[in-house]
Lab assay of single mutants.
Amino acid sequence: GPREVTMKKGDILTLLNSTNKDWWKVEVNDRQGFVPAAYVKKLDSGTGKELVLALYDYQ
């Protein structure tokens, strides 16, 4: 199956793709996968990378 990404509340993840309104593709610890968009919030990183903050645990 697809590689699952797990996250804990407060984690910072790299946002790869947010074109789908329900599932965003993120990368964390060299793993890529989809997380519910409602579970993360975009951060203003000030760099080229888009980052998101995990609002809830997800696994």
Rank of each mutant, 00 (worst) to 15 (best):
N17D: 15
V52Y: 07
I12R: 03
V5E: 02
A54E: 00
L53D: 00
G48E: 11
G33D: 05
Q59A: 12
E50Y: 08
E4A: 15
D11Q: 10
L51R: 08
Q32S: 09
V28T: 10
I12V: 10
K8D: 03
R3N: 14
T47M: 11
L53M: 14
G33K: 04
T47A: 12
K42D: 03
V5L: 15
A37M: 04
D30E: 11
Y58E: 01
K41Y: 06
E27K: 07
D22T: 12
P36A: 04
V40S: 00
L51I: 09
L13H: 03
R3E: 12
N29E: 10
G10L: 02
I12G: 00
Q59F: 11
L13A: 07
L16Y: 03
Q32L: 07
D22A: 08
L43Y: 07
P2G: 14
K42Y: 08
R3P: 12
L55S: 01
M7N: 00
V26H: 00
N29C: 08
K8N: 07
G10V: 01
R3G: 14
P2F: 14
L53K: 07
D11H: 04
N29P: 03
V35F: 02
G48I: 07
K9V: 10
Y56G: 05
V28N: 13
W24Y: 07
Q32A: 11
D11K: 02
P36M: 04
L15C: 04
V40H: 00
V26R: 00
K49T: 10
K8T: 07
T6S: 14
Q32C: 12
E50R: 11
T14P: 08
W24L: 04
G33A: 11
N20L: 07
L16Q: 03
E50N: 12
M7P: 00
V5C: 06
D22S: 10
T47K: 10
N20I: 05
K41M: 14
R3Y: 15
Y56A: 11
D57F: 05
T47Q: 12
L55Q: 04
E50G: 09
T19M: 09
F34A: 02
E50K: 10
K49M: 11
T14N: 07
D44C: 15
A37V: 05
D57S: 06
V5A: 05
V5R: 02
A54P: 01
A37E: 03
K41F: 06
T6K: 11
V52K: 00
A37R: 08
L53R: 07
G1L: 12
N20P: 03
K8P: 01
G33P: 02
A54V: 12
N29A: 09
L55V: 06
A37G: 03
F34D: 04
A38L: 09
G1P: 13
D44P: 14
F34C: 14
G33E: 07
